[in-house]
Simulated scan of single mutants.
Amino acid sequence: MERFAPLLLIVLAAGLAFVLCLVLRPLMMRYALARPNARSSHRTPTPQGGGIAVLAGAFLALNLALVLIPMEANAKQGLVLAMAAAALLALVGAWDDIRPLSPGLRLPLQVFCVGIVVFYAAPEIRLLPDALPLWAERGLALIAGVWFVNLVNFIDGIDWITLAGLVPLTGAVALAGGYGVVDPATSLLAAALLGGLLGFAPFNKPVARIFLGDVGSLPLGLLGAYLLYRLAGTGALTAALILPLYHVMDSTITLFRRLARSEKIWQAHRSHFYQQATDNGFKVIEIVAQVALLNLCLIGLAAVTIALPGFWVQLTCLTAALALTGALLRRFSRKRARR
């Protein structure tokens, strides 16, 4: 039973999320329509809030696993706290979807939710004990977590692109649990999220019938950061840096470019590389396919760093990951060559 638990969780969470999308879509049509704006790639009002189905499907399946599968008390507590923080952040996202929050209110709420994960859901993790005091490492983890929450939200601008990033990530972490790289609780969380995303995928395929909304992208960013944090805590820091590299580089480079141009970074825009790609002649399905293919390559490089922990292997794989990601960003930023 325990051996096949991740696979069963994937199937159960996918089924629940799919059914919930069907049930909730009429309500989303009525109360949560996303209308096109300066940032949008869609042209017609589309219901948002699919993240509710993803999280509910994943959490229902995961709570069943918590009841049926023996688990250490600390591991169970960490999962419960991570789910609670994600649920709270989902409420923040739902509020923002219906009535946009000011950055001055939204950011402190995000910091609070990420803080629950960093300080209480995974208090035992130390990444750089010989280089930084505990308070400094926790502070950096908090900043990185808040940034990851936001960058997942920033990237969620065209159909399937969040799935192209998070499906490989959650799948890789779930698989890592099967090889004993991460603890079983982390593997089960990854499997549940993977299932929830797969159940949502048919409704978000281009042209999407439902969007995730902030109610989905924000907590999924938090849980994705939590998975990466736990992976890094096993000693696989390079792998944790490699896996989300497309999302991190696209958002971070775009942020610094906008700051250099003195733009108001909290306002809607179309400066991300994947958005440039849509303007440069790439179809949405081509963009997400290339991002997904890159992420599969990044999984391979991350796996090598785990299997071969030598310094030069780590450096070589990280350099290769940066080069591959940079090449795709460059491709997206240029006009597509006519055939």
Rank of each mutant, 00 (worst) to 15 (best):
E2K: 09
F4T: 13
I10D: 09
V11Y: 02
A13C: 11
G15E: 01
L22F: 09
L24N: 10
L33S: 05
N37C: 05
H42C: 00
P47C: 11
Q48Y: 10
L55F: 12
F59P: 00
N63H: 13
A65Y: 14
L66S: 12
N74Q: 15
L81N: 08
A82N: 13
A84G: 10
A87L: 15
A90P: 00
A94E: 05
I98W: 09
P100N: 09
S102Q: 14
V111D: 04
F112C: 03
V118I: 15
Y120F: 15
P129H: 00
P129L: 00
P133L: 12
P133T: 08
N153C: 08
L166C: 08
P168C: 00
T170R: 00
V182G: 14
A185L: 05
L189M: 14
A192M: 12
L193W: 12
L194P: 09
G199C: 06
F200C: 02
F203K: 07
N204Y: 02
F211A: 05
V215L: 12
V215A: 13
L218Y: 08
G221I: 02
L223N: 12
L231M: 13
V248P: 02
D250R: 12
T254D: 09
R261P: 01
S262R: 15
K264E: 13
I265A: 10
I265S: 10
Q275E: 04
T278Y: 05
G281K: 03
N295Q: 11
C297F: 15
L298C: 13
P309Q: 11
W312K: 07
L315A: 15
A320T: 12
L322P: 03
R331C: 04
K335E: 00
